[in-house]
Design a protein around this nucleic acid. Sequence first.
RNA 1: GCGCCCGUAGCUCAGUUGGAUAGAGUGUUGGUUUCCGAAACCAAAGGUCGCAGGUUCGAAUCCUGCCGGGCGCACCA
Length: 574
Amino acid sequence: MASIAEKLTDITGAAFAALDLPVELGQVRVSDRPDLAQFQCNGAMAASKMAKKNPREIAQAVVEALQSHKEFSKIEIAGPGFINLNITDDYLASHLAQSAGDERLGVEKIAKQETIVLDYGGPNIAKPMHVGHLRSSIIGDSLRRICDFAGYSAIGDVHMGDWGRPMGMILSVLEARGTLGEPVTMDQLEEIYPAAAKACKEDEAQMEKAREATVKLQDGDETYKAAWKQFIDVSVKGMKKNFDALGVHFDLWKGEADVHELIAPMVNKLKTNGFAVESEGALVISVEQEGDKKEMPPLILLKSDGGVMYGTTDLATIVERMEENNPVKIIYVVDQRQSLHFEQVFRAAYKGGIVPENIELTHAGFGTMNGPDGKPFKTRAGGVMRLEDLISMGIEKAQARLAEADLARDMDKGERADIAQKVAIAAIKFADLQNNRIADYVFDIDRMTSFEGKTGPYLLYQAVRIKSLLRKAEGQGFKPGKEFLLRDSDRSLALLLTELPNVFEGALKNYTPHLLCEYAYRLAQEFSSFYAACHILSEEDEALRSSRLALCELTQSQIVLVLGLLGIKIPERM
RNA sequence: GCGCCCGUAGCUCAGUUGGAUAGAGUGUUGGUUUCCGAAACCAAAGGUCGCAGGUUCGAAUCCUGCCGGGCGCACCA
């Protein structure tokens, strides 16, 4: 089912078409002047340009065509040619009843279930996960949930950095220490990796050994491979702990190494097709296009030493995904700084015939995380902050807040821990997701674990309050009704509840979860005002009471749905 | 040097793709609880939308030029 704005758009669109004007001009949206009207259509002003007529005359003609539609309670022309529209309470009420009765709450499903692969998380082997992985993980996970709800078969792939030079560096250092082949722990790995990176940077001979080790590993050397396999296992365990705590899900635990076998055939094919050429000792594929404003460096497939670059593995990963998943879209949730790289890879993929033109490859990039000083985020000690430290800080603060509240007294330890966990994750996720994906953003630990104002916990609080209210109502034998009765104090919440399908569509189309954050917050806020203004359980008019309970229930369902799409879980109480 | 992104209230951010009086949170000030959960609600103050031009009925939004910040430009990932 469509949203109210869409239904009204159909009506006004037809009115424009009847005047031989483009249907698109009939676009109706929620008014940005709620004091004047509920909905507005601006098409008459755009039409006046093409028809060379007075916009108010056009608006007048459209308005006359709309008169026969009984959905409207008020149709007015304002200013230069705005068409202001109000709908009848009957119409609003019946629309609400429909969406309340719909298990998808009015959000339409795509016609055909197609596959989307989402690439996010991207943790590296042997390195602890830090706050930099947070954005990719939670934005990616949210986008996966959004695509899934839209009706796609959405596949999330963690795509670990488990290949290439860093692996060679670790192996060469282990060898130098004489401990290659012995089991290592995560703590040891975390010590070895930076030590190895430092040694290679300072010592050219060590770097040369690292290069050799990289090539040998990639050529399938048994000893190296066994050691490598072992530290993959150890690292993955550590990653899973973090992802589980965050509630970030992956369908595939693939890494760069998984496509190694596909590289040689892919490269050969690109060679025989004439796309891959030699340049300065390396094998490259040129990705320049006509109309390029900037220099576009070629994508390097093979380095002059025969080694593989990450662009090559990315390309081979596309080969694999096309074969195994046959997706219509592949979405990369990776730092915006990689945009040139993805431009190169995508162009190479299309040019080399690895993906057909009608398959969408998108880099859904996100901004750099800065500290409150505007510079790339560092802890006070100057290091990176570990993800697990951030999570435990959030949980501690949630526990402290819970201890303050009287309500926590009667809860057992297990429930209290569960609530603290959910509150902390809601705080962290919402603080991040509410920012526009593309812009750099300031990572402020206090803001991220704050529980007041526009925060995740505020949303949980409203949801929990509704739950509690509905429980109480049930205890008194009151049930949410099937019909809506709209008084002045109910109407703005009711109108807001009809916007969900449009908001969802925007978030899906632009890969922007922050639109859902914005909506969830408006909903919670609108509900809170409504809740303060009307006392529901003591309402004596039964029809009004059950209508209001129905509004509560629908609000509740929408908050659950939207927070679910953001990857935020709601406790029973808090 | 070339290119990409950003610049909106003291601070952190929205702004539905060109619409009416630019909105939230936070912080500041004041108010609200014999009543469904005060992690709340109501209200006030706070703006040359970086600057200057241009396009038009109409610009935070589109175009041009500056200023300021961030990032990226072939053998790292």
